[in-house]
Amino acid sequence: MIHSPLPQTDYMASGHVGCPGCGATVAMKFALRALGEKTMLVIPACCWAIIAGSHPQTSLKVPVLHTAFATAGAAASGLRAALDMRGDTETTVVAWAGDGGTFDIGFQALSGAVERNEDFIYVCYDNEAYMNTGVQRSSSTPFGTRTTTTPGTNWKHTRKKNIVEAFAAHRIPYAATASIAYPEDMIRKFQRARELKGGSRFLHVYATCPTGWRVPSDQCIKIARLAVKTRAFPLYEVTDGVRYTLNHDAEPPLPVRDYLSVQGRFKHLTDDDYGEIQAMVDEDWELLKRKVALAPEEARA
């Protein structure tokens, strides 16, 4: 018997077709535990379009609307409008997309939807490349990564897009990062997002991809934890686009090299490259700390 203050009812079945050690499945498991049965998912093309199951099966115990790649923000807007017209304000509409569907092809539709402040939760489970199609780079792929479209010495030489900042700039009610290595924090954020109904809520969830990152499948959680402890993926919340809260201080931080060097996708990096990436991480962290310091009293909903 598990004694935990966290919700334990699962809305995801075993027997799904995710890869061994898939972080995106861990993310869904915790998300649905937090959100409960009054949830409808809108899933565009992404790994989860497969993991959720082929006709006539489904691995999820909540309704799922599968939709075209670029459309999660728009389709979720329409579904929300339909529920409102039917008088159902209780059900939470959740768009659930990968980084390709969020940072790249679905960015326009999502930007439009959150500018309208559509009443839904948008979750990007981020595995930092197009994993479902065979590990091609996305605009979420970090500096230094080798993918099948950034191979050899042409590894990605530009930074990962900062997606939370992009949506904070839309001044949405709630934006936050979360990690599968910190389930209590993640479940709290999903519950908070659910309670903040009435506007757009964006959750950026770190989801290890053992297949694409070339790490052993049993290292999924450990690597996710290293991302936070090295400050490569800080855990924080932004309310109304301006009030920042840091959820995990990672003090003192581990060197980012500890996080990178255990992954096959970064194996080619030199000491100079590690130094360059460390400087980027330090700079981003300082920027984040300054934003947190600007409005330290975060108004809780």
Partner: peptide, 21 residues
């Protein structure tokens, strides 16, 4: 729903029709 493109307009009515309206 005043969307930002026709692609999204059709996606939005697909979402709405799937919700039964």
């Amino acid at each position: 729903i005043c969307v930002e493109s026709e692609h999204s307009a059709m996606a939005a009515v697909i979402g709405a029709a799937s919700g039964g309206v």
